[in-house]
Computed example of a mutant assay.
Amino acid sequence: MITRDTAAFVAFARGCPEDFGPPTAKAAFLVSPDGFARADESARDNHYMAADGFDAWRALQQHRALHVALSADLPVACFAGDPGMPDGLFPNNVFATVPGRLVIGRMRHPVRQREALRQDIRAFFRDACGYVETDLSTQPHPCELTGALVIDRARGLGFCGLSDRCDEEGAALMHAAFGLRATLLFDLAPGEYHTNVVLALLAGRAAVLAPGGFADPAVAEAIAGLYAPHVARLSAAEQAAFAGNAIALSPSRAWMSQAAADALSPGSRQVIGGAGFGISSVPLSAIEVAGGSLRCCVAEIF
């Protein structure tokens, strides 16, 4: 099922058992922010991106600390960056996996389309891991993978916010590529570019969502209903600090940036903790000026 009918999706989703696959990844990879700089093309539709203040050396230091920190939960590889790909440190928009298969997305902006051509990442999965490719990068419809599509891996459910970074045709291609049971399509609020800034599903057990990031607040409430009572509804301040850009890489810990963790209200902390997650964070201020945060840096390997 792939639909805009929220009621039909919710009715179907409630009957989906948690047997689709593991709720968290077996490994992950990062891409180093070598040559880190402002990507003017990406800034056209990413209001989270700063106009200045890009510090390449500090971004490298913080990214290295992120690599070390996440390695406490699972194996984490890191590929070298490329100065010609200033957004390359956010690989989850371009590369994603299901067991045995690498999915390559189609980016909206040419500066990011270059990332899909990286032969080292493709060869790693093909030759070292034995994964086959599903390459969506050469077709015309934008589909920025797990930036646009937030997935409940335990149930096989997708939540896809439509914007200039993902249209309906692109969403349908991703739904098929990930082999999902059901995908809900909805519009993001004006000015929002990716779903994973306004929605995180933690190991299929809890939802962290920013109602203000949805064009229709009823959609946010419908998603919340699927994960109640473990739902943290973010304020505008929490959303702006990237608290929605969180990820669980193990069944017992949620990761977010230090700024996001500092912005969490006591109520949000209580909800996340009540779902069985400790909260760990890493300072990423130098990286967040580029309009993404911790979850954007992490490409999961299933």
Rank of each mutant, 00 (worst) to 15 (best):
F277V: 00
L180S: 14
E18Y: 04
S268Y: 00
I301D: 09
F214Q: 07
P142L: 11
A263C: 04
S163I: 15
A236N: 02
E133D: 12
G204P: 06
A8L: 13
C296G: 08
A232N: 02
D187F: 11
P33D: 03
A290S: 11
L162V: 08
G161L: 13
P33S: 08
S265E: 03
H175T: 07
A77Q: 09
G278P: 00
I104L: 06
D87K: 01
P217A: 11
D52A: 06
F242G: 01
A243P: 01
A7D: 15
D52H: 03
P283A: 02
A228E: 03
C78W: 09
S257V: 14
C143G: 04
Y48G: 03
A8H: 12
D135A: 06
F186W: 13
E238N: 08
R155F: 07
A248Q: 07
P211I: 03
G15P: 08
V103L: 12
Y227G: 05
M85G: 00
G21N: 05
D152A: 13
A240R: 15
L202Q: 09
G213E: 10
I121F: 07
G147T: 05
F242R: 11
H175V: 06
Q139V: 02
A254N: 02
M49G: 06
A240T: 13
A207S: 11
V31G: 10
V111I: 05
I223S: 11
A116W: 01
L30M: 09
V132E: 07
L74G: 01
S268M: 01
E18R: 10
G292A: 03
C296H: 13
Q119F: 11
T6A: 14
A241R: 07
F178W: 15
L74M: 12
A25E: 14
Y131L: 04
A25M: 12
P140T: 14
L70N: 09
H47E: 01
E144F: 15
G273K: 05
D40P: 09
G88V: 01
V208I: 08
A11C: 12
R205N: 05
L185F: 10
G158M: 03
D164H: 05
S293P: 15
K26R: 15
F12G: 06
P86K: 00
A206S: 12
